[in-house]
């Protein structure tokens, strides 16, 4: 279920392609994993959301998302820049960020890890594989992984 911007959330999906976002959301919802998902469509909005700026100012009192699914190729501010910003700010640097992208390019993978990504997942084209990949990633970060309180 999509969350409103003034509610606490579990997963922040940064994805400019609405169909990809919808498929991801759907896959996660089907397994009843995360109940609170929020989607932003570009890098600038992602940063505003995470740092409670602009129209997301009301989120100041709320907790950060448990996991960020971040696409590489984004309008305005690129995925790598968003990642860099999150991983250098004291307030956000311990928030897990998993790159979720179509690119299997070696250079992209290396850059993502250099900037501190917590994971790198390539989205398969085939739907079953895609659903499986997304739900498994979700299960790991929301159910298996322990985060600092």
């Amino acid at each position: 279920m999509k969350s409103r911007s003034n509610e606490p959330i579990d997963i922040l999906i940064v994805e400019d392609n609405p169909q990809d976002a919808e498929l991801t959301t759907r896959a996660l919802m089907k397994k009843h994993l995360a109940l609170r998902i929020f989607v932003v469509e570009d890098g600038e909005e992602a940063l505003d959301f995470v740092f409670s700026r602009g129209k997301y100012e009301i989120r100041k009192a709320l907790k950060l998302p448990k996991i960020v699914f971040l696409d590489l190729k984004l309008p305005k501010v690129s995925g790598l820049e968003v990642l860099k910003e999150i991983k250098t700010q004291p307030k956000t640097k311990s928030t897990p960020v998993v790159m979720v992208t179509s690119s299997r390019e070696e250079a992209d993978i290396r850059a993502a890890y250099e900037f501190g990504a917590n994971g790198y997942v390539v989205k398969p084209v085939e739907f079953e594989a895609f659903s499986q990949t997304m739900t498994q990633t979700g299960i790991f970060w929301l159910r298996i992984n322990e985060e600092p309180r």
């Binding site: 392609n17 169909q19 990809d20 498929l23 590489l72 190729k73 992208t101 179509s102 690119s103 299997r104 390019e105 989205k123 398969p124 084209v125 085939e126 739907f127 895609f130």
Partner: peptide, 12 residues
Amino acid sequence: SHDLRAPLRAID
């Protein structure tokens, strides 16, 4: 690699 796969993913 990035842009051609996204529509295919949507179709599939």
